[in-house]
Amino acid sequence: MNELVADRLEGRVAILTLDAPEKMNAISVEMREALIVALQRRFLDDECSAIVLTGAGGNFSSGGDIKGARPAPEALARTMRHKLGRLQEMVRLVMSSPKPMIAAVEGKTFGAGMSLAVACDVVVASESAQFCAAFGRVGLLPDAGILYTLPRRVGAARAQQLLLSARSVEAPEAREIGLVDHVVPATDLLSRACTEAQQMASIAPLAFAAIKSLGSGGCATLEDAFAEEMRLQPMLAMTHDYSEARTAFAEKRKPQYRGC
Rank of each mutant, 00 (worst) to 15 (best):
D121G: 02
E251D: 08
S202V: 07
A193S: 13
V138T: 13
L84Y: 12
S128H: 02
R192T: 09
V123N: 04
L39E: 04
V91H: 13
A159G: 05
C219I: 07
R192M: 11
A77Q: 13
S62C: 12
M31C: 02
R258P: 07
V52C: 05
T79F: 00
C48A: 08
P100W: 00
P234M: 02
E3P: 02
N25P: 02
P255H: 10
C219A: 14
G178F: 07
M31E: 01
M238R: 14
F249D: 00
V105M: 04
S115Q: 09
R78Y: 08
R8P: 05
G155F: 02
L44H: 03
A225L: 14
F249E: 07
R8S: 13
A133V: 14
K254N: 11
A225V: 10
A34S: 08
D45W: 03
A119P: 03
M235F: 05
K252A: 02
A75I: 04
S128K: 11
R70I: 14
V105D: 10
R92E: 15
C120G: 09
A209Y: 08
E22F: 08
G136V: 00
A227K: 13
R258F: 09
P100K: 07
L35P: 06
A197I: 00
G215Y: 07
F110T: 01
F110D: 07
R158Q: 10
S191D: 15
C132S: 14
K108H: 09
A117T: 01
L206K: 14
K212M: 02
H182R: 12
V52N: 04
G11L: 09
F131C: 07
Q199N: 10
G111M: 01
A201Q: 03
P172T: 10
V124Q: 04
E106G: 08
Q130W: 04
A26V: 08
A38C: 06
A134W: 03
G55D: 02
R92F: 03
P100V: 02
L116T: 03
L44C: 02
F249Y: 14
A210F: 02
Q40Y: 03
